[in-house]
Write a protein that binds this DNA or RNA. Structure first.
Lengths: 112, 112
DNA sequence: CCGCATCCCGGTGGATACTG
DNA sequence: CAGTATCCACCGGGATGCGG
């Protein structure tokens, strides 16, 4: 096995790279139930995230093949995002991650 | 719900933060079967990672409570790392992530 | 309504070298 | 064998503003 670069070889290293965006996991979570428009998404996110950043994060996920961007040619413009096939399969991870995350939050509270 | 900062509230946002380190997931994977020494760990990782970086990543995971560092007072020094209780519970996520990662790699190959 | 071009800034990872 | 101290380069995220 080539130790130089495990991307595309090791599932963990590969996943890590995909999930590196600051909001990627949360976005996948928000999209898991179907198409959402850009501004809806923005409203669902913490206030701190800006327009630009959200746009970039979505573009990354799109480039990586996890989500699909659908543009409606109309005035005013309308764009929807939804999970691709491989993005949809991520739900298993999301479930495990959600459960673990809750336990971890609990752990943090106890420690404090 | 306070939209200002979801860390410690939303399990996804919280998890995201923990997993932000470039090697965190892979390290958790390598440690899942029991204690491993520093240099062993280094040998199991891609060549690119340096001593310093590995040390920092481990420290982060330790600070976050996912792993435990055990030092043996002897010459030469010996240090072992292993999963904490909450770190051990991460195995569910690891499994889901491993499966998805393989599917994703497959997806990437088809696209190419 | 949505995306992009810029600029800026901080964090994080990598390289090197030195301690116990 | 393991860790730490520095320094540096890079990248990603935030802010702002324009364009379609």
């Amino acid at each position: 096995m080539d130790k130089k670069d495990l991307f595309g070889i090791c599932p963990y290293v590969t996943s890590q790279k995909v999930l590196s965006g600051k909001w990627s996991i949360y976005l996948l979570y928000l999209l898991k139930d179907g198409p959402v428009r850009f501004n809806e998404l923005k409203r669902m996110m913490p206030e701190e995230i800006t327009h630009t950043t959200l746009s970039r994060q979505l573009k990354s996920l799109e480039d990586e093949g996890l989500i699909v961007r659908k543009e409606y040619s109309q005035i005013p413009p309308k764009v929807e995002y939804f999970l691709s096939e491989i993005g949809d399969k991520f739900d298993k991870v999301l479930i495990a991650l959600g459960e673990w995350g809750d336990e971890y939050i609990h752990f943090l509270e106890e420690k404090a």
